[in-house]
């Protein structure tokens, strides 16, 4: 009898072990997909911050330009570089706050540029404007794909039997969403002209 009970016990333990192994491997694949998509998001944000030296080069030619807005942009860009490893809710909120600062400062600069019609009509500036539009579209798309991947990961992670396993490992914490805060197209545009 004693031998038989031990036997059954071993079988049950092995089944549980295999079950944990399968769920763990699935979690890893979902996690890698999220990380990969996060790389794309960072790439698209990086593209925007790389455009700032171009803006500065264009403005250099103009005398009597308001320097306060320019300094703000340069400051926001210098604080822009942050490495995020965990993709938690807190980290992503931090990332988004910093990006929002940069976005706002760039928008303020574009508004000040409208006071200078000579600068506005140059070919370099028009090219830069189209590039800024393109980068915003890229950011929107990559952000949306990232949110989809996070949704997939979080739903799999938070289902009942999987939750017991995913709570053991710190790397499978809930991922944060990139919220639509500073989207120009989705928010109402007011024209005073």
């Amino acid at each position: 009898m004693n031998f038989k009970i031990k036997h059954y016990f071993l079988i049950i333990i092995s089944i549980i072990f295999i079950w944990i192994l399968i769920i763990y491997n699935k979690l890893v694949t979902f996690n890698e997909k999220v990380k990969n998509q996060w790389g794309q998001v960072e790439n698209s944000y990086q593209r925007r911050s790389d455009l700032i030296p171009k803006i500065i080069n264009i403005i250099k030619g103009v005398t009597n330009f308001e320097k306060n807005t320019l300094v703000d942009v340069i400051k926001a860009r210098s604080n822009n570089s942050i490495v995020i490893n965990n993709l938690n809710k807190e980290d992503i909120n931090k990332f988004q706050k910093i990006q929002k600062l940069l976005n706002n400062s760039i928008n303020r600069l574009l508004i000040t540029i409208e006071k200078y019609p000579k600068l506005k009509s140059t070919e370099n500036f028009l090219e830069l404007q189209s590039q800024l539009e393109g980068t915003e579209n890229r950011i929107n798309i990559e952000r949306n794909r990232y949110n989809l991947e996070v949704k997939r990961f979080n739903t799999y992670r938070n289902k009942f039997p999987n939750l017991l396993i995913s709570n053991i490992f710190p790397r499978f914490k809930e991922k944060g969403y990139l919220k639509l805060d500073s989207n120009i197209e989705h928010s109402p545009i007011i024209n005073f002209n």
């Binding site: 393109g134 579209n137 929107n140 798309i141």
Partner: peptide, 8 residues
């Protein structure tokens, strides 16, 4: 695949 390049 598409990544948002282009213009409108």
């Amino acid at each position: 695949h598409f990544g948002g390049g282009g213009a409108g």
